[in-house]
Nucleic acid binder design. Structure first.
Length: 779
DNA sequence: CAGTGAGCGAGCTTCCGCTTGACTT
C-alpha cells in the first residue's frame, strides 16, 4: 500500500515522475479535465447566479472511480496538475469529485520535469488557489454562454448545425477579411531596373539595381535612352558589420509554423507526430506557450555546443515570452536529452525531432556575423544610382545549425558575394534591363499563418489551435484549397549594344495552393455576426476579457460579477436578433429577372448550402407555383455569381443520352456533379462540366466506374453469397452480413482463402469486444 | 456515405480547453 498519491494531467508525465519519486509514491494521471459542463445542455443556472452544473463524462467514470479508491488508500494526495488556470481547476475538480480531505491534500506545481524541480515542489506545497479556479470557471462559463446562445441564432437565421464561438468566429473573420482585401486589391505596376556592368579587367561582371522603381513604360524607355550615352563610375563602397540572432526555442505555435514551412506538415500532423515523440520520451511537452528552458536544458545545450562547435559558438540566452495571455505552465519544446542526435521512429518523427533539436541548440549559440557591402554606381548627368548589396558571412554562429524560414515567398532573395571593386573605377555597361513588376496582393492564410495570427491576438491556446482549424473546416466556413492564378502580361525593356528592345511576356500571377479560403457560408455567417455581435467578434474581445479573468484570479473581482456584466448586455442582443423579422434571408442576393418566367432570381444559403432560386413562395396561396431550386457549383459563390450563370444551373438535371437502353442524367448533388444511369451514380470529375458533358464522355465514366468495381471484388463464394472478399482503402478485407473484418497479416494471398477460412476469421473477430459503431457520421 | 431542399410542427445541431485512446470503410 502506498503512502502518497500524486495526480498529474498526462500519463506520460506520470510515468517519468514515478521514477524520480521512489516507491513511497504512486503517480496517476487525470487525463486532463475530469469534470465539465454537460455536452448537450446549457448547464448554467442563469437564475441562480450562473451556477455551473458539472458532470463527470461517461468516458471518465471508470478513471474517476479508480482515482477515488487510490486516494482513499493514500495517506497524502498531491495534486500536481499544471500551474495555470486550467490546471488549477483540474486540481479543484479532483478535490471535489474525489471528496479529498483538506488535511490530507496538498497542491504542488513544477514547470519542468526534472528530479530537482519535483523534489522542490514536494517540499513547498500550497493549497488550491480558489481565485485562479474561479477565473477558469469564468472562462468556461463565458465560452459556453457565447457558444450556446450564438449558435442557435445561426440555426434559425442561416442554416442548422452551424456554430459560433469566441475563438472560431474570430478565426473565420480573419480569413474572410483577408479574402476581401485580396478581392479589393489593385496591383500597381512599376519597372524594376537591373544593370550588368563589366569591370575594368574586361571579364568580371557586377549586377546592380537602380535605387528607384520607374513609374511606367515611357519612364523606363526614357531612362534607358538616357543610359545609352551615360558613363558609370563606382561612387561609393561601404562595408558594415551586421549581426543576426537565433530564434527562441519552439512553442506549440512556432513549431507548427516551422514544421509547415520546412517539412510541409499540417498543423494537426505536427501535433500527432510531436505527441508520439513526447510519449517516447524524446521531447518535452508539446503543448506550451513558453520559450523558457530549464537550467538542466541550458547546461546540456552549453555542453553539447562547446563539445561539437567550440567555445566561440556558445552564448547563454534565456528567452522571455512576448505572446499575449501566455500562461507558461511548461517549458519550451526541446529534446529531453540534447546529446541524443538520432532517435528511433518513423521518418517523420526523425525529421520533426531534428528540427526541434536544431532549433533548441541554435537558440543557445552565438550571433552570426556578416559583413554587408554596398556598392553605389553613379550615372553621369543623373541623380539616380545603381546599387549592389552583397553579404559575406564572417562568422556563421548559430547559422551553422539552423536558419528560420520566412512565410514571405517574395523576399527570399539572397544577397551574394560581390566582386572586388575600387572607388572611382569606370565601368562598361553590358546591358540594362527594365522589367515590369507588380505589387503583391496580401497572402491567403495557411493553417500555420492563421495560428500565428490567433496567437498574436491572444486567442486560443496551444491545445486548441489544431482543433479550431478542424472545426472551421468541418462547419464548411473555410476550405483548404487551391486557386488558379490569372495570366498577366508584362513588358521587359532591354538596353544592349544593339539598342533598346521591347518584349511582351506572360506570367501566371496569384495562384495559390493549400490555402484557407472562405466559403459562402463562412462569409454569410461572418457578416451576420459582425453586424449583430461586433463586440464578440472584436479582435480585442479575448484580450479584454482575459484582463478581467486576471483580476478574478487576483481575487479582485467575483467571477459571477464578470459573467453578469457580460450576460446583461449580451443576452438581450441575442433575443433582439432572434426576434428580427426580415423579408429576405440573411445573405440573400437578388440577381435579376428570369426572362423565361419573368420571376426574380435569388441566391442564398439553403439548408444544404448555397442555392439559386427562381420565384418566391407564396404562403397565402397554397396553389401558387412553388419556387424552383438549384445548387450552386463548388467553384461558384453567391457573392460573385451572375444571372446568366445562375440560370444555367436550372438546366440540370439534364438528359445526356441513352446507354444500354437506359437514360443518362447529369445533375449536381450533395457530393458534387454526378451522372445517374440505371439506378447507379457516377461522379463527374472536376475536368468535366455537367452542363456540357457529352454522352460519349459519360459512357466512358460509367465504364471506368464498372472497371473499378470489378477490381473491388476479389472473391465470392457460390455456397454462401453473403461472404465476400473485397478490396478497400486499407487493403483486402472480408465483408459478411453487413460487417467488415480485417484479414490477418499472416495471410499472404487473400484470394486463396477458402470459405471455411473466411468463416474462421469472422468467428474469431466475433469473440473480441464488438467494434463500436462510428459515432456521429455527420461532420 | 448519397444524390435533397417553403414551413401544421419530432428532435437534433452548438462552445473552449485539458488529456489520450480506439482502430479502420
Amino acid at each position: 500500500m502506498q503512502k502518497n498519491l500524486v495526480i498529474v494531467e498526462s500519463p506520460a508525465k506520470a510515468k517519468t515522475i514515478e521514477k524520480f519519486l521512489g516507491k513511497d509514491f504512486k503517480v496517476m494521471s487525470s487525463y486532463g479535465h475530469i469534470r465539465d459542463l454537460k455536452t448537450k445542455d446549457f448547464s448554467i443556472d442563469i437564475e441562480n447566479n450562473y451556477t455551473p452544473e458539472y458532470v463527470v463524462p461517461a468516458d471518465k467514470k471508470k478513471l474517476v472511480s479508480e482515482l477515488k479508491s487510490e486516494a482513499k488508500k493514500a495517506d497524502m494526495v498531491w495534486l500536481a496538475s499544471d500551474e495555470d488556470r486550467e490546471g488549477e481547476a483540474i486540481s479543484w475538480h479532483l478535490a471535489e469529485v474525489l471528496g479529498l480531505d483538506a488535511k490530507k491534500t496538498k497542491r504542488i506545481v513544477f514547470h519542468e520535469i526534472t528530479k530537482n524541480a519535483i523534489l522542490h515542489a514536494i517540499e513547498t506545497p500550497r493549497e488550491v488557489n480558489i481565485d485562479l479556479v474561479n477565473a477558469q470557471q469564468a472562462r468556461r462559463v463565458l465560452d459556453r454562454i457565447v457558444g450556446f446562445e450564438l449558435s442557435p441564432v445561426l440555426w434559425r437565421k442561416i442554416k442548422p448545425a452551424l456554430s459560433a464561438g469566441r475563438v472560431q468566429s474570430v478565426a473565420v473573420r480573419l480569413i474572410v477579411e483577408r479574402e476581401r482585401e485580396i478581392n479589393d486589391f489593385v496591383s500597381e505596376a512599376s519597372f524594376r531596373v537591373i544593370a550588368t556592368f563589366i569591370l575594368p579587367d574586361g571579364t568580371t561582371l557586377l549586377k546592380a539595381e537602380l535605387n528607384k522603381r520607374l513609374k511606367d513604360k515611357q519612364d523606363a524607355y526614357k531612362f534607358l535612352e538616357d543610359c545609352q550615352k551615360a558613363s558609370f563610375v563606382i561612387e561609393d563602397i561601404t562595408k558594415k558589420p551586421v549581426k543576426k540572432s537565433p530564434a527562441a526555442p519552439f512553442t506549440t505555435s512556432t513549431l507548427q509554423q516551422e514544421a509547415a514551412r520546412k517539412l510541409g506538415f499540417s498543423v494537426s500532423q505536427t501535433m500527432m507526430i510531436a505527441q508520439r515523440l513526447y510519449e517516447s520520451g524524446f521531447i518535452t511537452y508539446m503543448r506550451t506557450d513558453s520559450v523558457h528552458l530549464s537550467d538542466l536544458a541550458l547546461g546540456t545545450a552549453k555542453e553539447a555546443i562547446i563539445d561539437i562547435y567550440g567555445e566561440k559558438y556558445y552564448k547563454f540566452r534565456q528567452y522571455h515570452t512576448k505572446s499575449k495571455g501566455a500562461q507558461e505552465a511548461h517549458e519550451a519544446i526541446r529534446p529531453t536529452y540534447i546529446a541524443n542526435t538520432d532517435i528511433e521512429g518513423s521518418a517523420q518523427e526523425k525529421k520533426l525531432y531534428e528540427l526541434i533539436r536544431k532549433r533548441t541548440i541554435a537558440s543557445q549559440m552565438a550571433d552570426a556575423e556578416l559583413e554587408r557591402t554596398t556598392i553605389s554606381v553613379s550615372i553621369s548627368d543623373k541623380k539616380e544610382k545603381f546599387v549592389a548589396v552583397g553579404e559575406v558571412i564572417s562568422f556563421d554562429g548559430f547559422l551553422q545549425v539552423y536558419r528560420e524560414d520566412t512565410d514571405d515567398e517574395h523576399e527570399k532573395e539572397e544577397n551574394g558575394i560581390l566582386p572586388p571593386v575600387k572607388l572611382n573605377e569606370v565601368l562598361t555597361r553590358k546591358d540594362i534591363i527594365a522589367t515590369e513588376r507588380f505589387t503583391q496582393r496580401p497572402p491567403r492564410y495557411t493553417e500555420a499563418s492563421l495560428v500565428r495570427s490567433l496567437e498574436e491576438l491572444g486567442i486560443g491556446r496551444p491545445s486548441t489551435y489544431a482543433p479550431t482549424i478542424q472545426t472551421i473546416q468541418n462547419r464548411e466556413y473555410v476550405l483548404k484549397g487551391d486557386k488558379d492564378g490569372v495570366e498577366r502580361k508584362y513588358h521587359v525593356l532591354t538596353l544592349s549594344k544593339t539598342g533598346i528592345k521591347d518584349v511582351e511576356k506572360k506570367e501566371i500571377a496569384g495562384a495559390d495552393r493549400n490555402k484557407l479560403i472562405p466559403t459562402d457560408i463562412g462569409i454569410v455567417v461572418n457578416d451576420f455576426l459582425m453586424e449583430y455581435f461586433p463586440d464578440v467578434l472584436d479582435y480585442n474581445f479575448t484580450a479584454s476579457v482575459e484582463k478581467e479573468f486576471d483580476s478574478v484570479a487576483e481575487g479582485e473581482m467575483e467571477w459571477t460579477n464578470l459573467i453578469d456584466k457580460f450576460y446583461k448586455v449580451f443576452h438581450p442582443i441575442v433575443e433582439k436578433t432572434v426576434a428580427i423579422k426580415t423579408e429576405h434571408k440573411v445573405g440573400e442576393r437578388e440577381l435579376g429577372i428570369d426572362p423565361k418566367s419573368g420571376k426574380p432570381v435569388f441566391v442564398k444559403i439553403g439548408r444544404y448550402g448555397p442555392i439559386a432560386q427562381i420565384g418566391q413562395a407564396n404562403p397565402d396561396d397554397k396553389n401558387a407555383p412553388k419556387p424552383q431550386f438549384a445548387s450552386l457549383m463548388k467553384d461558384q459563390s453567391i457573392e460573385t455569381i451572375t444571372l446568366e450563370e445562375a440560370l444555367k444551373l436550372f438546366d440540370l438535371p439534364r438528359v445526356i443520352g441513352d446507354f444500354e437502353g437506359e437514360e443518362m442524367v447529369a445533375a449536381v448533388g450533395r457530393f458534387g456533379p454526378f451522372i445517374r444511369h440505371a439506378g447507379k451514380f457516377v461522379s463527374i470529375p472536376k475536368t468535366l462540366d455537367p452542363l456540357s458533358i457529352t454522352s460519349e464522355e459519360a459512357i466512358e465514366l460509367i465504364k471506368e466506374k464498372r472497371e473499378k468495381e470489378e477490381k473491388r471484388n476479389i472473391k465470392k463464394f457460390d455456397e454462401d453469397p453473403a461472404m465476400e472478399i473485397l478490396n478497400g482503402r486499407y487493403g483486402p478485407y472480408i465483408a459478411y452480413n453487413g460487417k467488415n473484418y480485417r484479414i490477418p497479416k499472416s495471410v499472404a494471398k487473400p484470394e486463396d482463402l477458402t470459405l471455411e477460412e473466411c468463416k474462421k476469421i469472422v468467428e474469431s473477430a466475433a469473440d473480441k469486444p464488438a467494434t463500436k459503431k462510428r459515432a456521429a457520421k455527420k461532420k
